[in-house]
Deep mutational scan, measured.
Amino acid sequence: VGEWSCVRCTFLNPAGQRQCSICEAPR
């Protein structure tokens, strides 16, 4: 899977990211 949706702000982050780029919530 290439990306994941943040549970807090729904931003689509790259699969390699451990936390959201926008709101910094953990994956």
Rank of each mutant, 00 (worst) to 15 (best):
V1A: 05
G2L: 03
G2Y: 13
G2D: 12
G2T: 15
G2A: 10
G2M: 15
E3W: 07
E3S: 03
E3F: 13
W4N: 14
W4S: 13
W4H: 13
W4L: 09
W4K: 08
S5L: 05
S5E: 05
S5R: 09
C6W: 00
C6D: 04
C6E: 01
C6H: 03
C6I: 00
C6N: 09
R8G: 07
C9L: 02
C9N: 01
F11K: 13
F11S: 15
N13S: 09
P14D: 14
P14R: 03
A15P: 10
A15T: 13
A15N: 11
G16Q: 05
G16P: 12
Q17P: 10
Q17C: 04
Q17N: 06
Q17G: 11
Q17S: 11
Q17Y: 05
R18N: 02
R18D: 07
R18T: 12
R18S: 13
R18P: 10
Q19C: 05
Q19N: 05
Q19K: 04
Q19D: 04
Q19Y: 01
Q19V: 02
Q19E: 04
Q19W: 04
C20R: 00
C20D: 00
C20Q: 00
C20G: 00
C20E: 00
C20P: 01
C20L: 00
C20F: 00
S21Y: 13
S21I: 01
S21T: 11
S21Q: 12
S21V: 03
I22A: 13
I22Y: 11
I22D: 14
I22P: 04
C23P: 02
C23T: 03
C23W: 01
C23M: 03
E24P: 14
E24S: 12
E24F: 11
E24L: 11
E24G: 10
A25L: 05
A25W: 06
A25C: 08
A25N: 10
P26G: 08
P26K: 11
P26Q: 09
P26H: 13
P26D: 08
P26F: 10
P26W: 06
R27D: 14
R27P: 15
R27Y: 07
R27W: 12
R27C: 11
